[in-house]
């Protein structure tokens, strides 16, 4: 039968094509590096939690980009891989400096935020940023007096 090889090769091709699709567990989004700094009265805020809340549909990712500031108040966002940044789009930025609290044997920053409350909620925060393809250097985020 001359027609036999064609369906067979099609079947093999379909299986080979289907494999990578079946193995990819999650939908991944393209992220762009996002770096910035958190300041309060011109002083750097260390150990603050910075979360980018998507406002546009292009920014929707399986989880919100997140970062913690270092001693100089600097941060680099992580969405899926370390310091990978955030997907392209418009974001509302929340900044919290949670009060230290004892949990188990350690003090964890898990109490109420020590920064003005409006910065803690995506509905009330005045901080906005649009992530664009390429490197993103967010202008310093001023989070008001403590």
């Amino acid at each position: 039968m001359p027609s036999a090889p064609l369906p067979t090769s099609l079947l093999v091709g379909a299986v080979l094509l289907g494999l990578p699709v079946g193995c990819s567990r999650k939908v991944t989004v393209t992220c762009y590096s996002v770096r910035g700094r958190v300041l309060s009265a011109a002083e750097p805020v260390a150990e603050a939690m910075v979360v980018f809340h998507p406002l546009s549909s292009s920014a929707e990712a399986p989880q919100k980009p997140l970062a913690y500031t270092d001693a100089e108040g600097q941060f680099a966002l992580t969405t899926d891989k370390p310091n990978d940044g955030a997907p392209e789009g418009e974001y509302a930025i929340t900044v919290e400096l949670r009060a230290p609290r004892q949990i188990g044997e350690e003090t964890v920053r898990d109490g109420p935020s020590q920064l003005p409350a409006k910065y803690a909620r995506p509905e009330t925060t005045p901080l906005r940023y649009r992530v664009v393809p390429g490197m993103n250097d967010v202008p310093p985020l001023a989070v008001g007096p403590r």
């Binding site: 989880q63 997140l66 913690y68 270092d70 992580t78 899926d80 891989k81 990978d84």
Partner: peptide, 10 residues
């Protein structure tokens, strides 16, 4: 904290 936020899908 310097070890970075936990990457990957929670």
């Amino acid at each position: 904290t310097a070890f970075g936020p936990i990457p990957g899908q929670l």
